[in-house]
Each structure stands twice: as structure tokens, then as C-alpha cells.
Design a protein around this nucleic acid. Structure first.
Lengths: 188, 188
DNA sequence: CAGATTCGTGTCAGTGACTGACGAAAAGAA
DNA sequence: TTCTTTTCGTCAGTCACTGACACGAATCTG
């Protein structure tokens, strides 16, 4: 019964993913997950705030990398090009995480509770992107809009990339941002 | 003890809002809400799927109006102008609902669980907008992106309008869509 | 108007997510 | 070793949510 915090955390995450895949989210109790990880239910809740949170954990890494990438863009660059450049920077991380992401996908698709949490995580990312843009001098009302729209475009690129991997993520990213520009140009 | 389904539903919603405002969401039990509405906790869950759902109810009306507004736009109009026109159409509904919306706002701002649900509701709206665009011949990958971006722009307009009501919602709507166009134009 | 049907509700029992308090054991430092 | 901190197990408890059953009211039928 090791007392290694990180190891327990990892075992809980793996157990959760395995059980969610095997029986489904609803038919898996937090006690089941804990038992599979060799700990108690109480310990589960010491590591994760709730039954959904154990599913989302690499988010902080993406968040930090993304904010760093935003600040690394040359000053004076307009907000959306800034975000596009930042997204290009994190492509390696996304590609590396693809196997895990693909295992999670069917579980999320099958359980509304996890979809809600995924939306919340995305919204939190948008908030940090908004802050990063504001830190670069983008006015408040525009920063939030650009962060949102940028995230949507990024999500679209990821979705298309996972559906069609003949082109790489960089290509899909540029394509999605081009689609955005053309669509917005029709607004005049 | 009236047997009117709609009346009970309304009383539950009002009781929930009152109690959430008074004690906060976390310190309010579903039993409290039911008692204030003169029914049992079990009846509460016959009217609403969960404790969060009682808070969001006018969504179907907005959804229907919005899809109707989209189909009412002349065919051949590009997706984002279509959405902009549709949003202009539902302005009266939004203005009419403002008092209720403003009462709900502080509660949502204080409770993450309700923020998550609000995001889910918004995502559902985006999904119906995507369908509405597809029904008008917009290709799949573009439809989703435009629906998302359109919703963000709409949300931005609403947010600015609630913060500064010297201009009306129509003005804020046009302003937000202009911001979007200018921001996207910098992408080239 | 009497009877049958349907619908909304109350009651009860139960599961499972989540929390606080306390004690024990392991890990690290002195 | 001994002291301190961290991590875990145990226990008791609250609350969201569900299924099953029964009862009464509204509605439909003849």
C-alpha cells in the first residue's frame, strides 16, 4: 500500500478510464474506482473534487503551454493571428496526447455529465486566453470575443483533424482560420 | 393543493430562485424548494431533471424562435449574416426577459454548478443553430464553426448590453459583429 | 350522472456522490 | 531513534436522485 501521492492519483485516473470504458460512467461508482486503484472511496475524493474531475487532468499543462505561447508571439500582432500562432505552438502536445484523447472520446460522447465538464474546461481555457490577450494590451470587450472565437476555430480544427488525418493538424488549423476569415468577411 | 401541472412548475421555479438568492444554491436543498412550493421533494424531481434544471427553463422558447428566425432569412444569405439577422429578430424576447435574467445573474455568478449548466444550454443552442444552417445548405464543417462563432458574438453583445445600456441591444449586436469582422480580417 | 381511466401527487425505501472529524501509519527531517 | 508532516482508513452523516406503490383528483365515457 504505497503512500506515493502521484502514483495513487495516476492509478485512480487509469482505473476510472478503464471502468468508464467497460461499464459506462453511470454504472461505475466512485467506490469501484477506488477499489480498482487499491484505495478507499474517501481517498478518491482527496485526489479529485468529484467523479467527473478524475477524467480531466492534463488541462493545466495545455493551459500553461498556451499562455506561454501567447506571450511568445511578437508584440503588435493582432489578437486572432496571435492565437493562431499560439495554437500552432501546442500542436506537438496535442499530437502526443491523441491516444489518450481518443480513448476518452467515446466515454465523453456517451455521458452528458462529462460533456458539461468538458465545456467548463474549455470555458476556463478561454478565460485564461482572454487574460493573456488583455496582458498584451487588447481591450477588454474585444479580448473575450477573440479568445472565444479563437477557441472555437481551434476546436473545429481538432475535430476535423480527428475525423480526417490525411492532413496534419497544422494544415487543419490554417484551414479553419481561413474559413473563419472568409465567413466573417461576408458580414460587411 | 391544486393539481395544475403548470402552476406547480411555476411555483417551484419561483421558490428555487427566491431561495437561491436568499441562502445561495449550495445551502438550498431540493426539499426546501419543494416545501416552499407546497409540494414534496419527489414532485420536484417529477418536474425537473435535477437541482440545476429548475433554474433554466425559457430556453426552449429562445431556441424555437431562433430557428424560426434563421429559416426566415432569405435563402442565399451567407451563414454569419444569417445568424446576425436571426439574433436581431429575437431581440424583443431578450429585452422582455431581462428582468428575470438580471435576477438570475448573481446566482449563476456565485455557483459553478449553474455556470456549467449554462454552458451546456448554450452548447445545445449552438447545436440547433448548426442544424438550422445545415438545413439551409451550409456545408457541415463550416456550419458548426459559424454557429459557434455567431453564438459567441451574440453572447458578447448581450454581455456588453447588460453592462452598458445607453445603447440598445441592436446596436451592440451590430457592433459585436463588426468587431468580429475586423478581427478576422487581420488573419490573412 | 355514475363509472372507468388517466394523471399528478404523497409516501417509503434505497442508492450513490460527497464531506467532516478523528486516528493510525508511512515518509521525511532532526 | 524521535519528532513532524503527509497521506490514508474508518465512521457517520447529509443530500441529490430514483423506483415502486397507493391514493385522490381531474377527465373521459356511456
Amino acid at each position: 500500500m504505497p503512500r506515493n501521492r502521484d502514483a495513487v492519483r495516476l492509478r485512480l485516473q487509469e482505473a476510472a478510464l478503464d471502468l468508464y470504458l467497460e461499464r459506462g460512467y453511470d454504472k461505475t461508482t466512485t467506490g469501484d474506482i477506488a477499489a480498482h486503484a487499491g484505495v478507499t472511496e474517501r481517498t478518491f475524493f482527496r485526489h479529485f473534487a468529484d467523479k467527473r474531475e478524475v477524467f480531466f487532468d492534463g488541462e493545466t499543462e495545455l493551459r500553461d503551454l498556451l499562455t506561454d505561447a501567447v506571450t511568445a508571439v511578437p508584440v503588435g500582432t493582432r489578437p486572432l493571428p496571435t492565437l493562431r500562432a499560439a495554437f500552432h505552438q501546442v500542436v506537438p502536445l496535442i499530437e502526443r496526447n491523441l491516444p489518450v484523447t481518443e480513448r476518452r472520446a467515446p466515454v465523453i460522447a456517451a455521458t452528458p455529465a462529462l460533456q458539461e465538464r468538458a465545456l467548463a474546461k474549455s470555458a476556463a481555457l478561454v478565460a485564461t486566453l482572454t487574460d493573456a490577450l488583455r496582458a498584451r494590451g487588447v481591450a477588454e470587450p474585444l479580448a473575450a470575443l477573440c479568445a472565444q472565437v479563437g477557441m472555437d476555430t481551434y476546436s473545429t480544427a481538432i475535430r476535423r483533424w480527428r475525423a480526417d488525418r490525411t492532413d496534419d493538424l497544422h494544415t487543419h488549423l490554417d484551414r479553419a482560420f481561413t474559413d473563419l476569415r472568409l465567413a466573417a468577411n461576408a458580414l460587411k
